[in-house]
Amino acid sequence: MENTHNDALKFSYSNIFFSYYFNNERICRNMIKDHMLVFVYSGELLLLEEKNTIKIHKGECVFLKKDNRVNMIKQPNGKEKFSGIFMVFNRNFLREFYQSLDKNKIPQNIEKLKQSVIKLPKSSAITSLFQSMIPYFDSEEKPMEKLMKLKLLEGVYSLLQIDEHFYTCLFDFTAIWKIDIMEFLENNYMYDLSIDEIAHFTGRSLSTFKRDFKKISDLSPQKWLIERRLKTAYDLLKNENKKVSEVYLEVGFKNFSHFSTAFKRQYGFPPSK
């Protein structure tokens, strides 16, 4: 069990996450690295993608396609706090699943899914799958890894049963083409991404990413990200009169103390001034 915040708890079992949020809304700026299936057990989940907003209510489920950027707002509904179950289908798991399929029974000439956020229709298979996992919210006993893998398998089968277009989505193992590093960073510096994840999203191995980054900046990737976030924070504080408590989260810092120290080191005075 991981206590991620004073009013938030997260349990993680073999790529299945059980999340609680006890107070107010929680905004997460996420790059979705792997396909994800999300079930809202209580409260509400808002998904913001560019200009579109999709609301997922209690008892509903949504599929999030990999390699996309989505803002999540996990919020209560009345007195009912948010809690949800997140299933992550990583590349290796899906490769193994694909190898077990009878290729002759896989639908042919299916178009790829264009949407990256897909609210799923009501399905008895999906509902029963997530209902079977609800007891783990309150259990202190860790479930067996084999059992959690079976739940992941059941999740994939449920998606394939709902819509055959998921075949082309889940089993697309094409490598990402290299994309411009600086363009990606300028669009995504505010997100909580590791250097490994940034390398992945720009279509590179970690070593190739570091080598390519040296060609375009004298700074390390970590230093570049900090300075870029601080520059935006400075502009927001000076020109838009935003509160420091709002700005540090908006530009991608998770810790206020870290932000304040870095800001003062960069500009010679604290952000409050």
Rank of each mutant, 00 (worst) to 15 (best):
K238Q: 14
K51S: 06
I179A: 08
F184M: 05
D180T: 11
D138I: 08
F256E: 15
I106L: 01
C61D: 00
T127H: 00
F201T: 02
Y234W: 10
Q266T: 14
K242H: 12
P135R: 00
N6H: 11
L113C: 07
I56Q: 02
L236I: 07
I16H: 09
F269P: 01
T232L: 13
E140S: 12
K122V: 08
S12T: 13
S128Q: 09
E183S: 06
R204H: 07
Y234P: 02
F89W: 06
F93I: 14
S83T: 10
V40W: 00
D102V: 10
I198F: 05
W177F: 09
E80I: 01
F253C: 04
F93L: 14
N52W: 01
M31R: 08
F213G: 04
T53C: 09
F201D: 00
Y13V: 11
H165E: 07
K74T: 04
N23T: 11
Y13D: 14
L225G: 07
S220Q: 06
H165Q: 11
F93K: 09
F269A: 09
H165C: 11
F82N: 04
M144R: 13
L230Q: 07
S124G: 03
G155M: 13
Q266L: 14
C169A: 13
K146E: 05
S139C: 06
D102N: 15
Y98V: 05
K178R: 10
S220F: 10
E49Q: 13
R265G: 03
T168E: 12
F259K: 12
D67F: 11
D218F: 10
I226C: 11
M190S: 07
P143Y: 05
R26Q: 10
I118C: 03
L230K: 07
